[in-house]
Design a binder for these strands. Structure first.
Ligand SMILES: [Mn+2]
Ligand SMILES: [Mn+2]
Ligand SMILES: [Zn+2]
Ligand SMILES: [Zn+2]
Lengths: 172, 172
DNA sequence: ATTAATAATGAAAATGAAAGTCAAGATCAA
DNA sequence: TTGATCTTGACTTTCATTTTCATTATTAAT
């Protein structure tokens, strides 16, 4: 006879359990655990729709506007509401699993936080393409500037706006 | 008897003439001329209120939200409307005399373009202070990155968010 | 100075992204 | 299965910004 195991301080769904529901690659594991901690701390329950959004967002791994994500998600989860997308993305940001950007547009863009290093963006003004890059030289000089001003750095954001290679070629 | 001089292709108010109305320091002269060209091209007329806003904005030389500028301008020009501030700032941006920033707030900030060199900002998250800096090392590496990607740079924006010296001291 | 053409203005309405509300449905520990 | 609590979508609200429009100001030609 199988005994029912009683777990005392649960509230916290195990990563294994949620992983069965949210299919996720190993590299996003730490992000997922962060999310679970966050959910637990807030007493949030599991939800299919939220899980679907998160799973999709993680797999796609792009710089999404709410509108874009909404349009893609609704193909998978019909009846999904705009609010749920907004709420879920806000949750991810609060948990540190996502971050926001403003690439010169009105809409906020959301991107998954899973890369080890800080990275910045080249933003093509013609086609909207976003190219990520990391540059230690830039980082170093940024830190030097901060130190000069006795400024305690919490975060930084660098965007280089212009025309991508492809769009330059297409022009002529 | 004084002859009336007829100017053929006017439409374009001379900088001298507008300068008499908009009191401006020499260093903002090129900006002013750009504005006049811009006004002329669009067939805009002179306006006291617009001139007052521009003059104030140039003299104050800060990173303004529309609300801030509105509140300060209305002391000088009562009855001024919000729309006029919005419209004038938009004009300045279109003429290349002002540029916008988003320092992690909802409101857009406007700043005068008159400095020779591109500059970036340290933004204090505690007190809102904005510290400008220029760093050639950063610029150099940014250009290197762009070149690597065959990216044609039009503009760039770097913000370093954190806590300024003063706010760090105040904390303890 | 008068005039006619047209730009500028402020008040109010419209827009659009983002957040809040709430009744009905979903989740979960017991 | 139940009761407590969370989640959801439709709707409303908020707030920055833009647009509209009737009135006023500017300009160049008389
Ligand atoms: Mn990115
Ligand atoms: Mn500045
Ligand atoms: Zn492109
Ligand atoms: Zn400060």
């Amino acid at each position: 006879m199988k005994m029912k195991v009683k777990i005392k301080n649960k509230k916290e769904v195990s990563p294994e359990r949620l992983s069965k529901r949210i299919k996720i690659s190993p590299k996003n594991r730490n992000g997922l655990e962060r999310l679970l901690k966050c959910q637990a701390k807030r007493g949030l329950k599991y939800s299919k729709k939220r899980a679907a959004i998160i799973e999709y967002f993680i797999k796609a791994d792009r710089h999404y506007t709410v509108e874009q994500l909404y349009n893609e998600i609704k193909e998978i989860v019909p009846n999904i509401g705009y609010s749920t997308i907004y709420r879920t993305l806000r949750l991810l940001v609060d948990c540190g699993m996502a971050r926001t950007h403003h690439f010169g547009e009105t809409d906020t863009r959301f991107e998954l936080v899973h890369k080890e290093q800080h990275h910045d963006h080249l933003v093509c003004e013609k086609c909207g393409r976003i190219i990520e890059f990391t540059n230690n030289g830039i980082e170093k000089f940024q830190n030097a500037v901060a130190k000069e001003h006795n400024f305690l750095v919490k975060n930084r954001e660098l965007q280089i706006f212009g025309v991508c290679k492809r769009c330059q070629q297409r022009k002529r």
